[in-house]
Each structure stands twice: as C-alpha cells, then as structure tokens.
Design a protein around this nucleic acid. Structure first.
Lengths: 358, 358
DNA sequence: TTGTAAGCGTTATCAA
DNA sequence: TTGATAACGCTTACAA
C-alpha cells in the first residue's frame, strides 16, 4: 500500500506545487527569457535544439504559465467579466451558457457577477471586475445606472451589451429584434382571431428591451387600426406581488372584448407565469377564455395548460455572439459600435388557439 | 463643450488608469511599505499623522490595491472556483445564486466554469481555475471523474462538494437529505393511495445523489412490503431521446397496477418534464391516471397540468452553506470533512391526487 | 515607527 | 540566437 508520498518512481503528472518558468529554465539549462520566448514566439527566434530542450522540460514539469503573473506583466488577464441582473432569469442563464462556451473556446475565463436584481450594485460589480483586470465586459443588466457602464468604458475596456441598451453608451449591442418579434406574436394572435389585446410587462421605464417591445406593441395596434382590422390594445405593468392589479387588468380586458376574443402578450417568462397564475385564480382557460403569447421559450412551455405559445429567442446564439464581439474587440478590431439583432421564432401552441368552448 | 480631456478642475472620481501603491506613496510622501501597512494593519504600527496622510492620498487617488498583484505576492487571490456540470440545470443555478451571494458578502469573487454536461472536462476546469490561483472549489459535478477533485485537493485547496459526492474524497459535502426526501415523497404517494410505484431517474451509476435516491426508494418499498402495506416498486433509467423506452416503462407500470393506482417518483426536474411529456403522449391525466411526485420545486410546477407535486430542495441555503464551509476552511478551520444534510419539503399538488375520473 | 530592498512569476529591453 | 536585467504592483523581512 502507498503512503501519502508516492513510493514508486512513476512520474507524478502534476506536482502539488506548480512549476515556475524558473524551474523550467533550470531544467533545460537555459534562461527564463528563452523559455518565455518559446512560449510566446514558439519556433521563431529559437534554435531547434534549444526549443526541443525547453519543450521537454516543460512537459516533464507539467509547466503552465501563471495567468496571474502574466496579467500583472502584460496588463491583460484572459478574463472576461459578465455582469447579470439576475441569474435566476432563464434568459440570462441561457445567454450565460452561450457566452461561457464561446469564451472558453477562445481561451478566456468568465468572471461572474450577479446583481441579484439590485441594480445599484452595478458599479460595484464593474469596479470589482476591473480590479481583477478583466479585459472586457458582457453586460446583461437593466441599464438604468448609466454610470456603471460608462465606468467600464472609461477604463478603456470594451463592452458588449446584451438585450438591454445603456443609453448614450458607445458599445456593441446584441439583442433580439424586439419589434419584429412583437409583430410575430401579435400577427399570430390577430390571425387566430384575437382582437382586444393587452401587453403585460414588468416596469418599462428605462429598460430598453421593454420599451422597445411596448412601443412595437402600440405601433402594431395603431397600424392595424388604420387598416381594416378593428384591433384594440392596452398595456399593463405588472409588479411582483400585485396579484390584485393583474387580475383587475385581465378582467377589464375581457370586458372590453365583450363577445370578441381577447389576448395577452407578455414580455418575458416571469410575467408569463404571473398571467398564467392570474388566469388560474380567475378560473379562465388558456386559449379559449383568453389568448396568451409570451416572450421566452422554456422547456416547460409545452406542458402548461394546453401549451404556452412563445416567442423563442436564440439565447445561445445571443451569448455566443456577444462573447464573439467582445473577443474581436480584444483582438484589436476598431469599428464603430455595432448593433446585432437576431430574429425571434414563434412557437404556436394551445394558449393562442381559441377553440370553441365545450 | 468638453473635449475628451476634462477642462475644468472638478476632481475625476476614478481616473482612467488605476493608481498604484507607488502613486499613493508619492502623494503622501511616504514609502510604499507604509501604504501597504496602512492597508493591511490599519492603525497598528502607524502614527496617527502618517495614517491620515495616507488615508487622504488614497481617497484623492481613488486607490484600491490590485488583487492580481496581491495574489501573486500572497499566493491568495480572494477567488473561488465554481464548477458546475450544467448551468442549464435549475438546481445548479439556484445553488450558484446562493453561493455567489455568500461569496460576495465575504469579499470573494466567483470564477465560473460550466462543463456543459461534458464531465471529461472536469480536470480541465480544475486546472484552469487553479492556474488563476482560486483559493478553493465548490464542485457541483457528476463526480464520476474522481481524478479531477483529487487534483484540486492535491493542490492543497479546500473543496466543497454540492449534491454529488466524489468517492474517496476528503471534502466537505453539502446536500439534500436524499433518503429523508424520498421517504417524504413516497410516504405521500402511499397515503394518497398509490400502490404500484416507479422511480425514474437519469443513469444512476456513480452519481451519488441518484444512487442515494434509488437506494432509498428500494428500501422504502421493501420496508413497506414487510409491513402491512402491499406496495410494489420498480426503477427505470430514462435516457434523453429515449421516448419509446419511457412510454413502455409507464405502460407496463400501469399494467402491473391493474385496477390499483400507480405513481412515479422522478429524480429531478428534467426527468419530471420527460414523464409529463410521456403522459401527454399517452393521453393520461396527471393524478388520476398516474400519480407524480418530482424532485426539485420550480416556479412552473404549479401550472403544469393540475399542478406538479414536488420535493423542494433548499437550494439557496445549499449554495450559501457550501460557500460558507469553504470560506471557513479558507480562514483556517481545521476539521475532518463534514457532511451537511438539509431536509427537503414536500409541496403537494394535483399530480399526486387520485381524484375520481369524471 | 518608518524606509529599503527583495521577490512573487512573468515579459520586454537591452547587450552579448 | 541567447542571456542578464528591469519592470508589473504588491507584501514583508530586515535595517534604521
């Protein structure tokens, strides 16, 4: 049996204490500079013989350079800061997933800072992350605190905004084509016969994606009104815990509809669930008593009631593209800020089917 | 209008380039060592007068020490590595949330590495994270690759395991009391009248939480059999995309039940949705045609079918406690590995109510 | 009580 | 082509 120290001569793959460049230099009987050159310029500038000596030593010691030391020296850390308004939000998680993958593939690591929906901590997050020399930021935050993102930019670090714009920010912006997505959802509701519509969202003010969706909603309704279709539309802001308010809004929607069909467009999965809950309280059936299309596809959408109709966002893509944009900037790409808008996809299910009541 | 360089004399709160300890020393006309002492030993070892001079300089320059440089010097980084098998798993996200909060409160930042369900990358993750001098690990991975975690331990870094044990690992372990939770779920199914039971899980082998849940299931059934109750139980491993197999398993369960009631216990939210999907395919009603209790409470559970009965895990707590354990170790706590088991909570809903068929 | 200087693990600038 | 050597920003003996 073996004691804690290995007794036989099998080379330990990675020794307990990391080898340094000095160890490698010693083992290869060269200078630290040579090892560093081998690492950074590989075969340029190096004799074949020396190169292989270094290579062997590196392998033998299982050496890999310390990113910390490199960061200190180069001022670059191969770290990317990701600030998220709320990791609980499935959309954020999905983006995170895409971004994390892209970063890893490009040899970057992600430092995560979750605001826990407390947007006042956005500055704190940026500061903490810059302290760690992150090379750039992916921000999926409310964007209410302009200062925070401006801070990041002031540090000279590139920033990519996901889903929410920060006003007056010079930064790449990656997002769903909100206007198009709203048209997709409303067009579908209209086609299937719903005429009295309601847009339900969390507080809209200063959150760009919500503003855009609301604006698109209103535009769609008024455009339809000028057309032949007799479409009506209202908006409602749902606060957490304000069940009463939401119930009232839905009741009044249905009253306005009279004998016609009424439908709701929700701005994200959280709100969708609130509306589903309200309908359960009211004893209404999805689809028949009220249509529902919600932003954000989820794995549970098919199984709630008759199935929830959703507008699926290409979340993985959004994350991947955001990370990609950032990494391009880190490689030195000089370009005016880009806007990259991806299309949503409608997934029609029972909640937008006004099947005849039994 | 202002050009890019500020023209007036308002002190810029944080200059674009971070001040260093040398800048502060110069501004306060003291040595770097003094500034360092002020930072690390505050009022000990320092004259009041000098201390205030340093303090003023620090404030004026908005100085904060570089964690990178500190890490290089001290060998400690105030970084904690979190390795997650799959960020898409809501359980993992919930734990992440709790852990992140606790870390932030203790002044640690989290470095996230997501394996994307590719457990072969676990070693890679550990290596990358140790390279960044993380002080410890929180691991929520399958635990199949023992080497990975052992690596971490070999680096002398404390490790906390969440939800999944790594066999033969000396590490703190934070988890749900799986046996108790299973008894909770099965006791409930039994009370409400279900007699023929099935445990559906993802592949059990070598994943401790699944093994524990399966073992508890079998133990419960055989204990009941020795008692008065005529309880039967089987297990089934559900693979992704094997809809056929799951459908067959459920059909055969119902056949075995005959005129009696049959119920399913699922090992996590993903599997729960698979079973829900299978029942939709089979045209069966939750509760009436088959009972269902699933591990993991979710925000959508109330709205799937008649409501999904779940076993809620204290996810936030799990994350917080895991981080807490780790931080205690980092503070020097010497203790044999601890096991911290938290109780689950049964949330009974319609899916475990065998209401009479209409 | 304060300052000087060495060193953490790198990279970059110079000579050789 | 290679090797000293000086940084990067910090902490910590050791001296003063």
């Amino acid at each position: 049996m073996l004691t804690q120290k290995s007794l036989h001569s099998t080379p330990v793959p990675q020794p307990a204490v990391r080898a340094t460049i000095a160890d490698v230099a010693r083992a290869a009987s060269v200078s630290k500079a040579t090892v560093s050159r081998f690492l950074n310029h590989r075969d340029k500038l190096l004799t074949k013989a020396i190169a292989t000596r270094v290579e062997v030593a590196i392998a033998a010691l299982a050496y890999s350079p310390s990113p910390m030391a490199q960061a200190l020296k180069r001022g670059r850390s191969r770290l990317i800061g990701l600030v998220v308004a709320d990791v609980t939000n499935p959309f954020s998680v999905a983006v995170l997933r895409g971004a994390e993958k892209a970063c890893q593939e490009a040899g970057y690591l992600l430092m995560l800072f979750n605001l826990g929906n407390d947007s006042r901590r956005e500055c704190e997050a940026i500061e903490a992350l810059t302290a760690y020399q992150v090379e750039g930021f992916i921000l999926n935050t409310l964007g209410r605190d302009t200062k925070a993102a401006a801070d990041a930019a002031r540090h000279g670090k590139p920033v990519v905004l996901v889903d929410r714009r920060h006003h007056g920010m010079q930064a790449d912006f990656v997002s769903l084509d909100n206007a198009g997505a709203v048209r997709l959802g409303l067009g579908h509701l209209m086609e299937t016969g719903y005429r009295e519509l309601l847009f339900v969202s969390e507080p809209v003010k200063d959150v760009s994606s919500r503003e855009e969706r609301e604006a698109a909603f209103l535009a769609f309704v008024s455009a339809a009104a000028k057309d032949t279709v007799a479409l009506q539309g209202n908006t409602f802001e749902s606060m957490v815990d304000d069940e009463q308010g939401l119930d009232d809004a839905l009741r009044s929607l249905r009253e306005r509809a009279g004998h016609g069909l009424c439908g709701v467009l929700t701005s994200n999965a959280v709100v969708t669930l609130r509306v589903v809950a309200a309908m359960a309280r009211l004893g209404w059936r999805l689809g028949a008593d009220m249509g529902l299309v919600g932003f954000d596809e989820t794995e549970w959408a098919p199984y709630v009631g008759p199935g929830l109709s959703t507008i699926a966002q290409p979340t993985d893509e959004l994350g991947r593209i955001a990370a990609g944009c950032l990494i391009e900037r880190l490689k030195g790409l000089e370009l005016p800020p880009r806007q990259i808008l991806l299309s949503g996809r409608l997934v029609a299910r029972g909640s937008s089917l006004p099947i005849a009541k039994p």
